[in-house]
Computed example of a mutant assay.
Amino acid sequence: MSSDASASSDGTIDPASDSGAPRGDEGESGQVVENVEQTAEELDSSGQQRGTLRDVADSLGISSAVALRALRGAEEIKPLMATRVREAAERLRFPLEELSEETDHRGIVAVLVNTMRNTWISDLVRAIRIELTATGRSAIVVPTRRRVPEHPVAADTDAIESLVQLGVDGFLMVSDLADMDSVLEATGDRPFVGIGCSQDFRGRFDTVRIDDEVGQGLLVDHLVGLGHREIAHVGGVGAAVARERADAFRKAMARHGLEEQARVEPGDFTEQVGQTAGSMLLRGSRVPTAVTCANDVTAVGVLSAAREAGYSVPEELAVAGYGNTSLASSGVSQITSVDPNSDRLGALAAQFLVERVSGFESPPRDVAVAPSVVVRRSSSAGPRPESTKRKRVSVD
């Protein structure tokens, strides 16, 4: 159902249309109410006190941009649409008191990242900016990993302290940064929220995480359902999140009685290490028929290793990633991947931060967002029968 039939992908309204008014009869109106109520129930069941702008928009089948213009009373939005959006916002307890006028500029939020190479970050930042826009704030993305030899894995606390001096409202951290104690000390008393980070940080500050046990479980369920039993995982190195995903993989395999087949080949989140790990798996005496990876970048590396070793994907090796980034969805790779619901992660983290900036006081909150799996060509086939597998001669 889409009541935003007249809105384009960027949220603009076609002047020749009904200016955002929902189409259809009272049956559709009833469906809208049902969708809003379902969203409200989901928020309640997950312990969420407030809905985000994204929640309001999704419950009505419109874009966040249209929802925001409706809440701000834009003239091009028909009264019926404006009423429905405001009613949905009130039902979902969206913080209308934080809503700003389009010309208001209240502050800047810094998004701290380890690297700019991970395309998942761009998905998150887009969701963060949409939510912050509703409150008149903007976001800047700041790489924080030092690249000098004497600090190979240290955080650039000088940059963070400079941001504090410039007066940023607060900080959003994507994944785990190195040397967190120094990072938190550098942020001073500014509000701090972690996104997609390790469970280790629960209770230290607000965290909005991916439920990796669910994500890895869905991947393993998918592969086992295709007939795979010899399944390996590339990851477990470089960050606590990587270790947690490897542990979640082992648990999922154990749930299917496949503990003995649950091999974890050490790897981080880079393509180069993914390729090396993939080569190690494919040269061994016990070659898996499927591989799950810590992220999509690693999965690309495993695909490269499979190509170099002469393995056909997915006929001889199924590969799955994590993050559902543009790398996974590209026509070349077509990688099955866990979709972490980046829109939800970014919107909720931004709302948590705005609430803290506004003086909200409570113990640190922790939310694990449930992911889903997007199946693509890289895992569209089960393992070949032993009689049809090609025998390969290992090359030393």
Results as ranks from 00 to 15, higher is better:
residue 118 N to G: 03
residue 263 R to V: 15
residue 393 V to G: 12
residue 117 R to F: 09
residue 365 R to S: 08
residue 47 G to I: 07
residue 342 S to I: 00
residue 16 A to I: 12
residue 29 S to E: 10
residue 262 A to W: 08
residue 123 D to R: 00
residue 119 T to I: 12
residue 274 G to H: 07
residue 107 G to R: 03
residue 189 D to Y: 09
residue 277 A to Y: 04
residue 285 S to Q: 14
residue 276 T to Q: 15
residue 306 A to N: 04
residue 234 V to D: 10
residue 338 V to N: 04
residue 342 S to N: 00
residue 137 R to C: 09
residue 161 E to C: 06
residue 54 R to G: 02
residue 188 G to N: 11
residue 88 A to V: 03
residue 265 E to S: 10
residue 110 A to M: 03
residue 4 D to E: 14
residue 234 V to G: 12
residue 61 G to C: 05
residue 207 T to E: 07
residue 45 S to V: 01
residue 203 G to D: 01
residue 231 I to S: 08
residue 35 N to A: 07
residue 236 G to C: 10
residue 155 A to D: 06
residue 67 A to P: 01
residue 363 P to L: 15
residue 368 A to H: 02
residue 218 L to M: 15
residue 233 H to G: 11
residue 354 V to L: 08
residue 237 V to W: 01
residue 330 S to L: 06
residue 364 P to T: 12
residue 139 A to R: 09
residue 22 P to F: 05
residue 369 V to A: 00
residue 88 A to F: 02
residue 269 F to M: 07
residue 316 E to K: 00
residue 260 E to R: 13
residue 309 A to S: 13
residue 340 P to F: 02
residue 259 E to K: 14
residue 156 D to E: 08
residue 332 V to E: 15
residue 368 A to F: 09
residue 187 T to N: 07
residue 330 S to F: 01
residue 6 S to R: 02
residue 311 Y to E: 03
residue 144 T to I: 08
residue 134 A to N: 00
residue 343 D to F: 03
residue 49 Q to Y: 13
residue 151 H to D: 09
residue 300 V to H: 05
residue 5 A to C: 00
residue 287 V to F: 06
residue 50 R to E: 10
residue 167 G to A: 00
residue 56 V to R: 01
residue 218 L to G: 14
residue 175 S to K: 02
residue 380 S to T: 13
residue 330 S to K: 07
residue 113 V to K: 04
residue 7 A to D: 11
residue 277 A to H: 01
residue 313 V to A: 00
residue 221 D to T: 03
residue 207 T to F: 06
